[in-house]
Amino acid sequence: MKNAPDPSLPRRRAKTWAIGLAGTGFVLLLLAALRVAAGEGGVGATRLAVLGVGSGAGAAVLLYRQHMLWPAICVSATLGILATYLVFVGSTAVYLGWSDAAYFFGQERLWARVWLTVWTATISTGLSVILGIPVGYALSRLRFPVPRLIATLIDLPVMVPAAAIGALLFGFVRTPPVRNVLDAMGLELAHSATGVIFVQFVVTIAFAARLMKASFDAVNPRFEQVSRSLGASLPATFLHVTLPLAKRGVMASLIVVWARAAAEWEALMLFVGGTEKQTDVLPFAIYLDWNGGMMGWCVSMSLVCVLLAVATMGAMRLIGGRSYVW
């Protein structure tokens, strides 16, 4: 036990010291940065910065001697990302300010867009999931020739830049088999909410299939075998055994697919085009208003998007679905 230091009092004390030193260093560096930002740089700020770096280095040395440098690095990376995220969202909120927040969040125009986003995303999620469940089941339980190629083809629409998907959709809807189907259904895609739903469906279907596969993978096939051996048919087994067992995963996937659909913008911009009250779902509306310099609107809508994203991910965590995509 040569290397392992015993977890005794000095060690804990060293830890406290290190946290204190690192914290002080961080605060000093922050102060220095703020002074420079306010245009009062010079010797004072340099001194603060040197002190800050010094105490940070002190903390590092202490931690190194206690063999705790690695955990400290890991934890500070996490906290660093967290802090950056909070600044990222916080600065936007501060930019808007209370009075403007009250004004913009009281506007009907904002809520109309939120509502549009919610219902289009809900419909497209429904469609994606209806198609995604059988595909996910097939990927999870059935055999395929060239499985990796098939997996790649299914995943591709998720990984190609969404803007490219938007461009490629032009050809997709204007060449015969698809075009005939769309014509027969009488769907008007450009400049309409139908088009929004279509685009959201296209970019989330692959996602839904992947997630469903992950949910079904998590179900132990033994249960299905038992059910089958007791005489239940395959569809019955699927409905009464597999699906209930995968319920959590399926619910979680639903939420993720919904969130992804509600965040779609680039493909919309190219394929559907901006029309007030038809295609201006939140992410797209942000871009449209950005082009008119209407920062108040953009920022309040961005904040709604952030809230939606956090809420959906929070809901997903509450359900406890933890699914692998690949």
Binding site: F88, V89, A162, S302
Partner: peptide
């Protein structure tokens, strides 16, 4: 699941 437009704007 944050839209890219919101990311760019916040940045």
């Amino acid at each position: 699941v944050l839209p890219a437009s919101a990311v760019g704007l916040c940045l």
